[in-house]
Design a protein around this nucleic acid. Structure first.
Lengths: 142, 142
DNA sequence: AGCATTTCCCATTGACATGGTATGAAACAA
DNA sequence: TTGTTTCATACCATGTCAATGGGAAATGCT
């Protein structure tokens, strides 16, 4: 029932890009240092974010990454679905041929459906901007 | 983000036992047939349910399994937590040493906490009896 | 032009979990 | 005693996860 490291790290990476946005492009090396992640693994993850258009990149010296849109335009759900494929708790909710033949008679599927709705309700209603705001409020209270 | 087959099958097995309770003990073979699961794998799962005291067993001819308590005494959450260890979306919520050292400065953990609450809110508020009731209502509508 | 920096791309690895089989012993009813 | 059924354990094949490594291509700086 765990979200994979890919998914969780991706959220941290996106938030890091949002937090440290100075206008310049941000290097993998500096993200890795702040977030304490392996550069190589981080590279792999951010490459997926790049291919999906969530970040934009510049190669070469003084290159790096930045968010392609404003922090409020990215929900946690968008990021997780990209990395995980889906955020559903059971394969029969993902449609396609993984839908089990027993579904019609399966008394349990309603549980997974409720669960999925609950999950969506959370991840689709939190944006990176929300997280930035939370952090700001926290630091005031300290 | 998937619940493992162990967790999902366990719920189906428990519901099957609830549905087919005639007072007699129910054989693995008959559950496997109804639920279309491998007998051997099912055996493995129901053995965990047995050790946890969720079902009681009788060995030998005319033996089998039945629920140890009434269907309303088992929540989905109880079953999933037994099989999965936990239903939390991130290891740093499980306490112990898996709690990451970065938690205090981690802007993302609040997301996982919200997610966990949403998940708990679903699985801890559905019992096997609820599923029995739903099925009954459905069959009336058909 | 040449060099350092940095992203990009692909292949590989080790560990672990998943999903399932196989074998046989122990308990029990008829 | 014979057949049925749970119980216990070991085994295995496959896949995924999490990460590492090596080098090619692009870019800025001097």
């Amino acid at each position: 029932m765990k979200i994979s490291t890919k998914g969780r790290y991706a959220v941290r990476i996106m938030l890091d890009l949002a937090e440290n946005d100075t206008g310049d492009y941000i290097k993998v090396k500096s993200i890795a240092k702040r977030q304490d992640l392996s550069e190589k693994y981080l590279e792999q993850i951010i490459s997926m974010l790049n291919k999906a258009g969530f970040v934009k990149s510049v190669r070469g010296a003084r290159g790096g990454y930045r968010l392609s849109k404003a922090p409020e335009d990215f929900t946690i759900g968008m990021i997780l679905r990209l990395m995980e494929g889906s955020v559903s708790p059971a394969p029969c909710l993902d449609g396609g041929m993984s839908a089990c033949s027993r579904c019609s008679s399966c008394g349990v599927i309603s549980v997974w459906e409720e669960l999925q709705q609950a999950i969506n309700g959370v991840v689709d209603n939190i944006t990176l901007q929300d997280l930035l705001d939370r952090k700001k409020i926290e630091s005031v209270n300290i």
